[in-house]
Design a protein around this nucleic acid. Sequence first.
DNA 1: TCAAGGTGTCATCCG
DNA 2: TCCGGATGACACCTT
Length: 774
Amino acid sequence: MLSLKKYFTEGLLQFTILLSLIGVRVDVDTYLTSQLPPLREIILGPSSAYTQTQFHNLRNTLDGYGIHPKSIDLDNYFTARRLLSQVRALDRFQVPTTEVNAWLVHRDPEGSVSGSQPSSGLTLESSSGLQDVTGPDNGVRESETEQGFSEDLEDLGAVAPPVTGDLTKEDIDLIDILWRQDIDLGAGREIFDYSHRQKEQDVDKELRDEGEQGDTWPGEGTEALARNLLVDGETGESFPAQVPGGEDQTALSLEECLRLLEATCPFGENTEFPADISSITEVVPTESEPPALQNNLLSPLLTGTESPFDLEQQWQDLMSIMEMQAMEVNTSTSEILYNSPPGDPLSTNYSLAPNTPINQNVSLHQASLGGCSQDFSLFSPEVESLPVASSSTLLPLTPSNSTSLNSTFGSTNLSGLFFPPQLNGTSNDTAGPELPDPLGGLLDEAMLDEISLMDLAIEEGFNPVQASQLEEEFDSDSGLSLDSSHSPSSLSSSEGSSSSSSSSSSSSSSSSSSSASSSFSEEGAVGYSSDSETLDLEEAEGAVGYQPEYSKFCRMSYQDPSQLSCLPYLEHVGHNHTYNMAPSALDSANLPPPSTLKKGSKEKQADFLDKQMSRDEHRARAMKIPFTNDKIINLPVEEFNELLSKYQLSEAQLSLIRDIRRRGKNKMAAQNCRKRKLDTILNLERDVEDLQRDKTRLLREKVEFLRSLRQMKQKVQSLYQEVFGRLRDEHGRPYSPSQYALQYAGDGSVLLIPRTLADQQARRQERKPKDRRK
DNA sequence: TCAAGGTGTCATCCG
DNA sequence: TCCGGATGACACCTT
């Protein structure tokens, strides 16, 4: 494990530096800040020295780079945990662990990192050098309390040593103590298991209870310290995230930590922390690892000639570019992963890290493919001048070959190390083959620029449909969502409505009174749909108002029409909001059992019926129209006139009846119209899909033709050279290619002509197409 | 409170 | 000229 750490950290650092030197900005932030326990432990051990870079930017963006929004709290949390751990470790025997973050102390001998440094950024950096990353167990972020704690520590001087020049003995002692504090002896996972932590939490809880009952801290500081030492076998930390109300607990833990700090190291506010630590170092027995190992671990940075801030800058470059690539295109994947339920442990712990490399992979391809698919530079006139082998050089960067980057990287293949086994196992389908791609993309961006969708489709034997799907995914931001056409509901409704709209006129014209009652027909929005608005006392005089209850009840088409058909008043009224419902669904509408209609509720029912009636129905009732609105609306003109002639109706009644008929018909027409609109949109979407497929197919065919043409030209050229090379003049000497050329005659014969003449003819032939264009 | 979508209604056009 | 379908526009309501 230690060798693996050494190997990996060295390799990763060298690789990162290499990328930075060549100008590639890679965002490793997403790797480091992700809650990937194995990854963190592999890269950093239980600490997070690398995240100092990020922590440096937490509260101040000195270099102008944006801070990853998902990493701030996490880093704060890790920082606080690390501070807490180290404070607790001051007075106890500690299992030595490999503390990578000691690099930060070493690597900045002439830096301005100082505990008294007024610059917040520098202070933060120095304090972050003490931060700790203990793994993924901590899902709760308590940035506020931790920041406060960090600031408190700064006030106490509990910051990194004032390394303003050469390392003093105290500095070296501090480095040594830091190393000894956190050496990882490979403690078993059982130390971190829940039951163990639960016990520790219980201890903490008791401690807090005591603190709540009475502020016994000053007197019990030593005891609390002793109890606190049992909290964590390796780091001495509690696990606030495991307990409800974790923030409070963390706050207490931080406060407790401060108190412990005071109890353990009673330095004043201006007392420099390192001095105390160095003094403690002599007392604390440690089992440090062999110095050689430490030196080996330190070597990657210590041997570097770059300044620490340059290295930090390179890290930030690495982080930034990877983050930008991740955020660039593949938002869908991000949404899936980011929007995972918070309770999902997998998504909570691993959402960021697995997502990032996947996005980077896809984004790199999408960035190149999207652009190329539109530019189609491959089909430009220069396409013939492109070497045939050029496409083959792109192959390693295509998705199908992306896995080959593993072999390309050989022993430095990072993908297997970047991600824990369980993660690789769970995300193999999606992330597996794509993981190396960011690295591949970083290796040669210029090559990626030349990748096109058609390259994938042609060179890699992509199905055109797949290619078009890729294009569709790239164009997912278009106004019309093509996926909506795949929605079962929308599709069925549109298909069902298309027939209804075409037959609406016939049905309405041929419908009789019986057909009018069958408004819940499969024809859709052809039946009368009674308005759902109510008519209260004012409405009878023209006021209009809505009753939300009823609107909720039968407003939409999917609402149950049985709620209305059970009502005797409305059994003849076709409240047809069901034009997109299946007939079976309508037929299966259940009527409430008659027993439920008790006499006591008749009044309520009457009120309810009043509310169910539309405005026109209310008006018709108010005007004492002797027939139903359904008949008024759905009867043919002849029958409608007959009906009117049977009754002696006043002018107002006739006017209302005509209005009801007009409005009812118009309502149905509007519904049909809207359905047609929807159908049109859906059909257009399908047409767009078909056209995209055709476009992809045609482009593929074009490229195939171009390739075939290129091959034929090469063949002709080789034949030309062969024939020309066999020609001999009268003296048996070969003709000079610079002086003579072969020309193909129209009849198939081949003539040997002077080169000048051939050039002239070639020019003429070139002019002809231009003239034709003009 | 705002936005988006659904629905009813009116006015208008057109066959 | 009337009838009715189609549709844009608007208002209102719900989510």
